[in-house]
């Protein structure tokens, strides 16, 4: 994992902690729907907050195949590189 990807993942985890407002163990292997029990709306709202955090556009179809926080970090990292 390169440095920017690592930073992206760390920032995503920080954002998620603010969203969840409860103590949970979060790392790259955390399964977003199963482990965090977020419904579809909560996931979409979290994605929207990440768009603002990174000042990027994260189209919803790009997160369709995302399962873990590491998957999400990879997608966001790619999109950050685009601009």
């Amino acid at each position: 994992m390169n440095e920017t990807l690592q930073n992206t993942q760390a920032e995503i985890i920080e954002g998620l902690r603010e969203t969840l407002r409860k103590p949970v163990t979060l790392d790259g292997s955390t399964h977003i729907v199963r482990d965090l029990q977020l419904d579809s709306l909560a996931v979409m709202d979290f994605i929207m907050s990440l768009e603002d955090r990174f000042d990027v556009v994260i189209p919803l179809d790009r997160v369709a195949e995302v399962e873990t926080l590491a998957d999400l970090a990879r997608v966001v990292d790619q999109l950050r590189g685009r601009t």
Binding site: M44, I47, M48, E51, D52, D55, V56, V57, I58, P59, L60, D61, R62, T83
Partner: peptide, 21 residues
């Protein structure tokens, strides 16, 4: 198409997301 959401009834948020595009 690529799908992007903006905050409910928030024209400034829409503006921000269109600017990114």
């Amino acid at each position: 198409a690529e799908v992007v959401r903006f905050r409910h009834n928030d024209p400034d948020d829409l503006h921000k997301r269109l600017r990114r595009l």
